[in-house]
Write a protein that binds this DNA or RNA. Sequence first.
DNA 1: CGGACTGATTGGATCGATCGAATGCTGGTC
DNA 2: GACCAGCATTCGATCGATCCAATCAGTCCG
Lengths: 334, 334
Amino acid sequence: MVTIKDVALRAGVTKQTVSNVINQRPVVKADTRARVEQAIAELGYTPSLLARGLATGRTMMIGLVVPTLANPFYTELITRLERGLETDGYGIALCTTDGDPDRAARQLVTLKRRYIDGLILFDDGNVSRHLDLVRQLGLPFVLCGSETAIPDASPVVTFDHGHAGYLAGAHLRDLGHREIAVIGEFPAHEVRLGGAQRALAEGSIAIRPARIGPTQAKSQHGGFEAAARVLTDHPEVTAVIATHDLLALGVLQAAAALGRRVPDDLSVIGIDDIIPAAEAQPALTTVAFPIDRLAEEAIGTLLGPSRETVSLSPHLVVRASTSYRVGGRGIVGA
Amino acid sequence: MVTIKDVALRAGVTKQTVSNVINQRPVVKADTRARVEQAIAELGYTPSLLARGLATGRTMMIGLVVPTLANPFYTELITRLERGLETDGYGIALCTTDGDPDRAARQLVTLKRRYIDGLILFDDGNVSRHLDLVRQLGLPFVLCGSETAIPDASPVVTFDHGHAGYLAGAHLRDLGHREIAVIGEFPAHEVRLGGAQRALAEGSIAIRPARIGPTQAKSQHGGFEAAARVLTDHPEVTAVIATHDLLALGVLQAAAALGRRVPDDLSVIGIDDIIPAAEAQPALTTVAFPIDRLAEEAIGTLLGPSRETVSLSPHLVVRASTSYRVGGRGIVGA
DNA sequence: CGGACTGATTGGATCGATCGAATGCTGGTC
DNA sequence: GACCAGCATTCGATCGATCCAATCAGTCCG
């Protein structure tokens, strides 16, 4: 391992001068700088971030705590966060919690022990618990994408989940649907549900929330099972709102399995706008969140001058999985 | 920040004794240990991994360099690697290359500067270039999942890609298909193609490799476009091999768009067995790689006693996207 | 009862960088 | 020629741990 001392020796200066060169401090004379830089190049010296971190307290590492990599929503977000942080010179320490609070707690402590410069924390259903620990550890953080309002959770960068639900509900309402089921990950997506209910209430429309348990509700398979149950129990349903796209993909799958054609026999709408949504069969109508904006804002909030709360607005993306209700076709089958 | 010194002071011992307690060295007397442990608890002390890393040279961090998070194959792998490494106390520094060799090079240098204990490197099409740098930096590594044979690349943990291609080809051959297209990410998946060709040659079957460019070939969309082109140009094709599942999902999508029913009008087979493959419409027949085994072996090879090369065998998973060729139905449409 | 031996704890150097203060050098001024 | 300013560089301490050698008790034994 070649150290700053080796470089100093070779360039005939002290390590402090080398340090000054590395950190671009304007105190070094031009020819000294040149000599040092040559020594660095010749030896292939790369300054230790460990030692620097220890001395300065800055490690140029950001901890990223996400619920799972199985949902493209998070991987798309991580990808953007990584790119954004990279331009600022930061690296990423990745932790997935899989909804296990103890594991998450261990990971948070480890991140602290690594002296990370900041933490980007996603809501996995146990945020409030995690936030307590994060505060106790004194980690700078930003809470990202969370739906439930946590007291004193700021800084928070998130989406307007209620409005997303509203847009989904309003879309189906405007298409004339009156028998609508909601399949969701609860209680996490309670706010999205609330928004949808608000939109539907404006058309005095009945709603059948098919609540599915927290374990399965994260996966496409969970959406499939819930949808299959709802659609057989309530054949009069002509439209389904899924509180996130992965679930919606499962609904699509269930519809196909039950011989319900989408969108002719059944309209399906999701929330998030993950990439596979656009590539589904049929392409999924959904409410899009500006994932790239979220990533930007999260980084800005964590590293920049302190802000409080940012909330980003979703917008409707109409594709092929929703259409006008045609003469109550669903009811005929009942 | 509470340090080992604070603990020592409070427990009335020196930091060395505290260190001995932390590291479970059996030299500490029981009551001293108890006193130290209590001080640790009272102060909420967590040993700095930076300082320890600097002193010992071990950071308990593993670098993970992957091509992209947009392919579930990698996220499934990362998830397993993370779990496996976590039980050994290791954390993950994540880097995605997105096929950009310069970026990858910068990331590798940064990982080195972080004194990571090891590197798990995936093939993104530029491995040989990266390997040179990794060796030059002196990073302990394991090359993971790579297909192309790199001279002196060991240690390598990978799959038998040739056999995977063979299994895919043999399956379609046995189902009676004679007009088969291959859609793939080349040259990366040349070996898979070779295996498929070997199987088909055994039935003296024609093959139409539809090579698609390296940029698009990574995504489902790329598979869609390539399949659309091939299927319209060559309507006599009754079966498609995609060299990885994401591509195969795109083929499914293209078939639907062109009104070719799968598997009746067209058989489709992929390779990898990612989770969305099982949830596709229809469920995708594919050649499965033991992702969990790969993760295990990669960790074992990197951290355990040194081995050379591990190659894991794939197996065929028959689902709903392949069937017997029925009287050349595809040709009728031509 | 002194010397060797084991067991527990301590002291000081070290890892590789940064930080702040001190030093040396140059040139201008009176 | 002495004095001071200002620039470039050096010196020594520090970050928070570990490592190795040294010290200090006790015990055991001849």
